[in-house]
Design a protein around this nucleic acid. Sequence first.
RNA 1: GCCGAUGUAGCUCAGUGGUAGAGCACUUCCUUGGUAAGGAAGAGGUCGCGGGUUCAAUUCCCUUCAUCGGCUCCA
Length: 641
Amino acid sequence: MSVKITFPDGAQKEFNSGITALEIANQLSNSLAKKVLAVEVNGEVMDATLPIEKDATVKLLTWNDTEGKSTFWHSSAHLMAEAIESLYKGIKFGIGPPIEHGFYYDIDTGDTTLTLSDLEKIEKKMLELANKKNEYKRKPISKEEAISYFKDKGDEYKLELLEGLEDGSITFYTQGEFTDLCRGPHIPHTGHIKAIKLMKLAGAYWRGDEKRKQLTRIYGVTFPNQLELDEYLKMLEEAEKRDHRKLGQQLEIYTFDDEVGPGLPLWLPNGGFLIEKLEELAKKEEEEAGYLRVRTPHIAKEALYIRSGHIPYYKESMFPPMELDNVKYYLKAMNCPHHHKIFAAMPKSYKDLPIRLAEYGMCYRYEDSGSLFGLMRVRSLTINDAHIYCTKEQFASEFRAVNAMYLKYFKIFGIDKFKMRFSKHEPSKLGQKYMNEPELWIETENMVRDVLVSSGIPFDEVADEAAFYGPKIDIQIYSAIGREFTLATNQVDFAQGKRFNLKYANKDNQEEYPIIIHRAPLSTHERFIGFLLEHYAGNFPLWLAPKQIAVLPISDKFIPYSETVVKALKEKGFRVKIDERAEKIGKKIRDAEMMKIPYMTIIGEKEEQNKQISVRKHGKGDIGALTIEDFAVLLQEESVY
RNA sequence: GCCGAUGUAGCUCAGUGGUAGAGCACUUCCUUGGUAAGGAAGAGGUCGCGGGUUCAAUUCCCUUCAUCGGCUCCA
C-alpha cells in the first residue's frame, strides 16, 4: 500500500502507507529533517511523528512557520513544566499554551513562593532536560484512565479540564519524566530547544475568572539557537526605548505626582502644546463635517446617571459621589448624558437632524489601581467626543461619514497597523451587562455590519464586547511593548434616546426617538498622545513638534545674528528655541538631537557673513547652508499635516 | 481589586545595622570652541510615608502609598 503526498509547490510523490512526516523529510534531505517541528496534513497541524495513512497534502513545518513556532513554544511549556516538577514538590499544573511570543504555564505552587532566582534555576534545569533530546510521546487515553491518573497525582486543575473533554478525544503527551494532558501537537524531541529565557513571573486567575484561585504564571520564550534569543532580547530593549512612559519623561510631555494622584497626568508645556495642536485639527475637521461645538460641566447630579444607566451599569468605574444638601453629585465618566440634555433643551423637528454635538470633554473614571498604565490607562481623560442624533434613514450615511473621518485621521498620522473590531452584545447577558432590547440589538448590529461591508473596511466581529447601550466599532492598536489598546471607538446607541426622552417630530408630526452615534476618532488626548509617542518614537512630524527648530550659535559672538534668525523664523510662523549656553557646538547639537527637535540651525562666522544658516536635520545630519527664505520654503510642505 | 517585584539627589543607578555616594542635569567661574558630551568649583537627599525590633535603622520586620510585570476590567 502506498500513499500519494502532495507538497505545497504542487509536486507529488508516492510513499509507503504509514510513513511519518519526519521520515518523508529524511528522504528529501537530511538537513530538512533536522528542522522539522510539526506537519500540516490536509490543513491540520499534527505531530511530525504520526503515521500518514491516506493520500494527503502535506506541509512540513519548521521554525519559519507560525505553526512551527507555536508548536515549538507549546512543547517548551511542557519542558518548563517538567523542569518545575523535578525541582519542586507538590506543584499542580493549570494550562500552558503558546502565545504570540513564547509561552506560559499557570501553576499552583502550594506553599512555596517562586521568586526571580527560581526562574534561573528552572531555566538551567530546562536546558539540561532539553539536552537529553527526549521524545514527546503521544498516547490516546480513555477519560476514565485520564481521570484516575490526575486523581492519583492530585491535580484538580487537570481534572476540571478533563470534565470538559469527550471520551475518545483525549491524549496524553510524555517527554522524559513528565506527562501532561494535551491535545498536541508537539515537536519531535526536546533537543530542538537550544536557547531559553524565562521572562516574568505573574499572577493569573484560574480560567481567567477573578473569583477563582490565582495561580502563578511563568512566561518564557525559547529559540532553536542562542543568536535568535539574543536578537529577540535586543528587540525588546529597542521597544523599551519607544515606550511612551520613557519618551514622555525624556521629551517633557507629561508627569505624575503622588500628591495629585495615580492616573491623573499633569501635562507639561510640550504636552500642552500637542493637545492644542490636536484640538486645532479636530475642530477644523469637525467644523467642516457639520459638527457644532458645546461645553458642559464636569459634574452632575446622581439623577442624570440613574437616567443614563451609568449608575446601574457603570458605577464601579465612577469616582464616589460628593454630597451637598442631601444631593449626590458625580464626576462625569462620559460626556453623553450632558450632550443629551443639550439635545433636549429645545424641541426638535426632523428638519433639524442630524445634529452633531462635539466637545473635547474631560472625564474621570475610577479605573482599578492595577490597570493604570502611563498615559494609556488613566483616571482623568479628555475625549475627542461627539454625539450624532439622527433618524434611522440618516444612520448609514452618518455612520459612514464617521468612519471616513477615522480613515482620514489615520492617513494624516500614518497609522496603518490597526484592527477594526465590531463589538456585539451577548444575548445571555441581556438585562445585566446589556440593555434588555433583543430586537434593537439585532437591528442595529445589522445596520453597522452593512455599513462596514459596503465601505469595504476589513473587520473582526466579537461577541460580548459592546457598550451597554449598543454595538460599537473599536480600533485596536498596539503599544511599543506589545500591549493591545482600543484607540478609538464608534458606538451606536439605540437606548439612550428613549431613556432621556429625546424626541423629534417626523414629517407626520409624530414623535420619534433619534438614533445616537457616539464617536471619538482621535480617542482621548491621553491615549492618543501616548500612542503617538510610540508610533513616532518621539520624532513628531514638523507640524506637530512642540519645538521645530533649535538655533545654535557656535559662540556667543554670534548670538546677536542668531537672534535676528530667531526673529525671522518666528515671523514665518515657526516654533523656535535658541541655545545661548556657553557650550561647544557639539554639545548643543547633542542636546537638540536628544530632545528630537526636527531641525537645528548652526550659526557661526560663515553664516553671519553670507546671511545664511547651516541646517541640520534630526537623525540625518548636516544638509548644508541656506538663506532663511529658502529654508522656509524647504519646510513649507512639512509644516502642515 | 488580585499575584509578584521595586522605591536612595531632577534623571540613571551604586551602597551600608553606627544619620550616604557616582555619572548626567543644575549654579558659578574658566574656555569662544564648526555638526552627538571642553574644564574646574559648588549646591542639592529626614534613603517613599508611618510604626516596630535595636544602645543605634536608609539597611532587619510589619503596615501603608506609589511605580513596574502580569491577571481581571477597559478609551
